[in-house]
C-alpha cells in the first residue's frame, strides 16, 4: 500500500537491510595484519624481557664489584698498619748478592702494599734492611 512518507524516515526504516558480504580476500588481508600485530606484540614482549634481564644483570655485576671493593678495604683496614710483618732479611743466613737483590724487591712490594692500605704509614716502624753474615756469604 502506498502512502506519503518522508524520504529520511523511509531510508532509516530500511537501512537494516544494508548488508554486503565482503570479498574472500578481505579476511586474508585482515588475518595477515593480525599476524603482523601478534608478531609485533611478541617482539615487544621479548624486548621488555631482555631489557629487564640486562638491567638485572648490570645491577648484579655492579653490586658484586662494589661489595668486593668494600670487602677488600675492610680487610685491609682490619689488618692495620702492623698487619704486614716487616721483612727481616737479617734473619736469613748465608745470603749471596743475587738473593739479596731478590729480597729487596720483595721488601719493596710489601712496603708498597702497606702504603696503599695506610697512607699515614710511619717509616720509623720499619726495620732497616741489614743482611746478616753478608761478608761470609760473599766469601762463599
Amino acid at each position: 500500500m502506498k502512502s506519503k512518507k518522508d524520504i529520511s524516515d523511509l531510508i532509516k526504516a530500511n537501512v537494516y537491510k544494508l548488508e554486503e558480504r565482503p570479498s574472500k580476500k578481505a579476511w586474508e588481508q585482515l588475518e595477515s595484519r593480525l599476524d603482523q600485530h601478534a608478531r609485533r606484540r611478541s617482539f615487544s614482549f621479548r624486548q621488555i624481557i631482555s631489557i629487564a634481564a640486562s638491567i638485572v644483570g648490570i645491577a648484579g655485576i655492579t653490586a658484586l664489584i662494589t661489595l668486593s671493593f668494600q670487602r677488600g678495604e675492610n680487610d685491609i683496614a682490619a689488618e692495620g698498619v702492623n698487619a704486614v710483618e716487616p721483612f727481616l732479611i737479617e734473619a736469613v743466613e748465608n745470603i749471596n748478592e743475587e738473593e739479596k737483590g731478590f729480597y729487596k724487591v720483595v721488601e719493596f712490594q710489601k712496603k708498597y702494599q702497606d702504603r696503599l692500605s695506610n697512607p699515614d704509614f710511619q717509616e720509623g716502624k720499619r726495620k732497616k734492611i741489614t743482611v746478616a753474615n753478608s761478608s761470609s756469604a760473599t766469601a762463599n
Binding site: S3, K4, I7
Partner: peptide, 18 residues
C-alpha cells in the same frame, strides 16, 4: 521531502540513492 512510497525500500535502492 515527502514522497509517495510503499513502506518497503530495497537495500540496493538505498545504496543507489546515497
Amino acid at each position: 521531502s515527502k514522497v509517495t512510497v510503499e513502506d518497503d525500500l530495497a537495500a540496493e535502492d538505498i545504496i543507489k540513492l546515497l
